[in-house]
Structures are given as structure tokens and as C-alpha cells.
């Protein structure tokens, strides 16, 4: 029961940060709040026992994303332009949220041992990991061997995204400058 209160408090904090970030028009403050959002979200993931997700959220969401957003901030004006209330995006967002809320009702209960995710291939992975892969860490054997192609695809996606971001943030101009002073 105490876990419920901790979760509720963390989700309330997340909602508060999200609303404030939407309301603010000073972009630097929005970047700061998004970093805070990621840290609180990562804390929520730790509380929910999704430790690997929390690691990723803290490293990517709070670390890299904040730094990338700051790098972008140096290329754009400091304040958001005032604009009218955007009805179509707001409607789409609310419709998606409503559909997700309806879908949540059909999910298995949190930690349910009879949930499909625990009865499909997970038992085979847990039993066969030591013999098939011969390394003690089951998570590593699932990521690097059972779902090796999946992981490769994810790595390619992340790599492509990194290249695209570097190009957008001025990779072209830097290459010209590097040609002059050999600063690679």
C-alpha cells in the first residue's frame, strides 16, 4: 500500500512538471524542466522495479537529451513565439490519451504471474540460458543472443538518429572548419 502512495506522489510530480513545461514560454526553463521530468520518471521506474529502463531513462532522457536540447537552444531564439490554441493537435493528443486509458483497463495486473509476457518464451529463456549461452546473466543473454537481431536493429536506429542529429546541429560546417585546423 505504501508503494501506491509513492507511485501516486511521483506521478503527481510528473504531471506537475509536464503542465509547467507546457505553460512556460522561456525555452531554457522548458529544457531544465524536461531534464527534471526525466529524473523523476527514472525514479518512478526504479520504484516499479524496471531498473534497466530507469538506467536508460536517466542516461538518455536526463543526460543526452538535455545536452542535445541545449545545443539546439544555441541555434534558436530564447523564447517561444506566442501562438493561438492549436485545436487539431490538442484533439489528437486527448484522443490518443483516451484510447490509451481505455487500453490500460485490459492490461494484466501489475506483477501478475499469469500475464502472457511471463508464459510465452520467458520460461524457456530462464531455463535454457545457462546451457544455450553459457553466461550467468539472463538479461545479457536475452539481449545479446536470444534477441540479438532485435538489439542490432535498435543499435542501428540509435546510430542513425545520432548521425541525423549531428547533421542537423551543424555537422556540415564543423567538417569545413576541421579541414583548416585539423581538429578532428
Amino acid at each position: 500500500m505504501s508503494g501506491f502512495f509513492v507511485n501516486a506522489a511521483l506521478i503527481s510530480l510528473l504531471t506537475l512538471i509536464a503542465f509547467l513545461a507546457i505553460r512556460l514560454h522561456r525555452l531554457f526553463a522548458v529544457v531544465m524542466l524536461s531534464g527534471a521530468f526525466s529524473l523523476v520518471a527514472a525514479t518512478l521506474f526504479v520504484v516499479l522495479d524496471a531498473v534497466d529502463v530507469a538506467f536508460t531513462e536517466a542516461a538518455v532522457g536526463a543526460g543526452i537529451s538535455t545536452i542535445l536540447a541545449l545545443a539546439t537552444l544555441s541555434l534558436v531564439p530564447a523564447n517561444e513565439k506566442p501562438h493561438d490554441f492549436a485545436f487539431v493537435p490538442a484533439f489528437l493528443a486527448f484522443a490518443t490519451a483516451a484510447m490509451l486509458a481505455v487500453a490500460v483497463a485490459d492490461l494484466p495486473a501489475f506483477g501478475d504471474v499469469n500475464a502472457p509476457i511471463h508464459n510465452h518464451v520467458a520460461p524457456d529463456y530462464l531455463k535454457g540460458s545457462a546451457e544455450d549461452i553459457a553466461i550467468p546473466n539472463v538479461v545479457t543473454s536475452v539481449l545479446a543472443s536470444y534477441r540479438g537481431f532485435d538489439t542490432l536493429g535498435e543499435t542501428v536506429v540509435v546510430f542513425t538518429a545520432a548521425i541525423a542529429v549531428l547533421l542537423v546541429l551543424g555537422g556540415w560546417t564543423r567538417r569545413k572548419e576541421d579541414g583548416e585546423d585539423d581538429n578532428a
Binding site: L39, A42, A58, A62, G63, T66, I67, L70
Partner: peptide, 14 residues
Amino acid sequence: LLYALINFIGTIAI
């Protein structure tokens, strides 16, 4: 501990 490190690096970047 990892969060403390990321917090530090993020502050340095800012």
C-alpha cells in the same frame, strides 16, 4: 550513484 554522475555531467554541460 549513476544518477549522481549524470546529474554532475548535465550541470557541467549547462
